[in-house]
Amino acid sequence: MADPGGEREVRLVVNGVERVAAAEPRLLLSDFLRHRLGLTGTHVGCEHGVCGACTVLLDGEPVRSCLVFAVQAEGAELRTVEGLAGEDGELGPVQRAFHEAHGMQCGFCTPGFLISLTALLEERPGASEEELVDALSGNLCRCTGYANILAAARAARDQAAERA
């Protein structure tokens, strides 16, 4: 067994708020967010980088937080599902699209999909069908069969394209 090493402070910005908490070097970012910061909206479905449930935005890029150590995120700017609502507290457009298209059932995979789609539409508001499918193919959903997730993604894309 490797020496886990002592805990150190990790300082980062999550959803616009500076957060500091202790982490040993091997602590996964997903566990850090969920259990140290209490941000349990980011879910863990596989812990080996396949399911995408743990996806967060790290300095604007979608990453799988189960594949990143918390200490690697030192100084970074993170966005999680808890940060997707508008400033007025209303659901954001991507969230609303999932609700309106019945793009979710158990909701366990949903935060990962919301983040992946947010990342895509922020970069490419007019994303093509292929780009949508591509961006969402890294997230697994076992409940919906994806059809309504794709419908939600199209609706959110159409709105984003209009705003852009």
């Binding site: 941000l39 349990t40 909206g41 980011t42 879910h43 999680t80 599902v81 808890e82 997707l84 609502a85 659901l91 969230q95 999932f98 609700h99 979710m104 909701g107 366990f108 949903t110 935060p111 919301l114």
Partner: peptide, 8 residues
């Protein structure tokens, strides 16, 4: 669930 406020 959309707000990340589910309780699993």
């Amino acid at each position: 669930l959309l707000r990340g406020e589910g309780r699993f």
